[in-house]
Design a protein around this nucleic acid. Structure first.
Lengths: 266, 266
DNA sequence: AAGTGGTCTAGACCACCAT
DNA sequence: TGGTGGTCTAGACCACTTA
């Protein structure tokens, strides 16, 4: 008679056929989303979480693995597992795609990877307004609902490189104002997260080359009509719900838009 | 007296402190790289591979997991694990970043995701030549070594959208010629892989906006000086060794360069 | 020393695919 | 029916952090 080690209780499968680690993952994600686990403290230990959902520690770890992979959680050996916070480092790594120009031929630049420089951000305007058709459908709200629209200039090493026009729903980020915005201590996504409980998980970007209009040219200190990149970005949170719609105008006279296809090879 | 289940033999650790699943992963990768496992047949089963390296099946699976994640291997339930092949589908998914223009406001386009269209590729020229300084250092060869340089035009729906100038080392792709190139059945990366045993794993891209030069303008059917995107791409294989250096000129009048930051949310 | 995550094992059972 | 990958378990031991 064979041993009965894996006494997997077949029933109690919420989603029909979803494996248990995925069920646990969804449950965990829900609790993070609703703020039942915050970034302030560590989550309960893996042993406790495993017990809570009646799965083995291996299965629990697999659920957590996926959330770590998606930057929702971070593990710290010896300390615990935490809800991931938006830091300047994460911003540079995951969301900022601008680097000083160099060519693939340039060995210096390629192999001596200098730490990417964090941009200085200058707020040019901040207004409360009503959503246009485009803004509304990008943010999945109704035309005319309240939005905040603000405009930034990003500097890298004394040089203006990008103009950002950012639009967010004022329903979602209730109470955001210019003061909070300009006085923030870290990145914008960090502000969304810490002050409003909205966590940006990923972005969609669509870029094209255009001629700089008069406004952008003035802000970037280039001549009108010069070729610039225009980048439309939609930032998404859990469930791919849109959080922010941003149009960036990038001056590529001395900088590049960079994009590394999957995985820096472990 | 406690049970002795995990009799992990501490010694025989090649890389000092690398965990065993990573050692196994490197070993597997080496065998794939050197063609000892080819895409023609399935790899030995996980049980056999685990035995081969004297690890448990769980550990072996973890090694394979990572290679699957990096698109080096693909698993097929019930059949086996295979070396990943470059297919048109993979090309579109991982390496082709051009899509017809639409705005984030356009619900139709956003949520009814139409299958991306595969570009028609037309070879404009193919020459054997000697590496310039820039080409040489991008490809990590010596100036003056042999290279193949070819030029393509990509069409999407009867419309010229991109000009590619591609440079590869003739030492690496010995015997490549215009005939092989134009008669190929699938993507270029598929040709590198199937005919030359070179597998492109990832790419680095640096993009900027420029004014179209006369040549590009003619090829793309636009006026000289119109803003276009210029994309410098380096394609890498195992160990991040460069395979191909490519300069693309993209007409963004009706198309966008798209970039989704990590993970389509499981 | 106690608690956390990180690695590893040995094995059972399930789902899928071929023959 | 037999082989493959996919899920899951129960537990041991290691490495790291903090007190």
């Amino acid at each position: 008679m064979p041993k009965q080690i894996n006494a997997r209780p077949k029933p109690e499968m919420p989603h029909g056929d979803a494996p248990r680690y995925r069920v646990v993952k969804q449950a965990l994600q829900k609790m993070i989303e609703t703020g039942q686990y915050s970034a302030a403290h560590a989550l309960p230990s893996e042993a406790v979480l495993a017990e809570k959902w009646r799965v083995s520690i291996g299965t629990l770890r697999r659920a957590v693995d996926e959330l770590v992979h998606e930057h929702v959680l971070v593990r710290r050996q010896g300390k615990g597992t935490y809800v991931a916070l938006h830091s300047p480092a994460r911003f540079m790594f995951q969301f900022f795609h601008v680097e000083p120009r160099w060519s693939f031929g340039d060995d210096e630049a390629m192999h001596l990877q200098k730490p990417a420089e964090y941009p200085a951000i200058e707020c040019l305007s901040f207004v409360s307004s009503r959503a246009s058709d485009i803004q509304a459908s990008a943010l999945r709200i109704k035309r005319g609902e309240g939005v905040f629209v603000f405009e930034n200039r990003l500097m890298l090493g004394q040089r203006a490189v990008m103009r950002d026009e950012i639009c967010v729903s004022s329903g979602l980020l209730k109470g955001l104002n210019e003061k909070k915005f300009t006085r923030r201590s870290s990145t914008i996504y960090s502000l969304y997260q810490t002050d409003f409980g909205i966590t940006v998980l990923r972005t969609l970007e669509r870029a094209r080359a255009v001629s700089a209009d008069a406004t952008s040219a003035k802000i970037l200190g280039i001549s009108a009509g010069a070729p610039v990149m225009q980048i439309h970005r939609l930032a998404l949170t859990f469930g791919d719900r849109p959080v922010e719609y941003r149009i960036s105008t990038l001056c590529t006279q001395a900088h590049d838009y960079v994009n590394a296809s999957p995985l820096p090879a472990a």
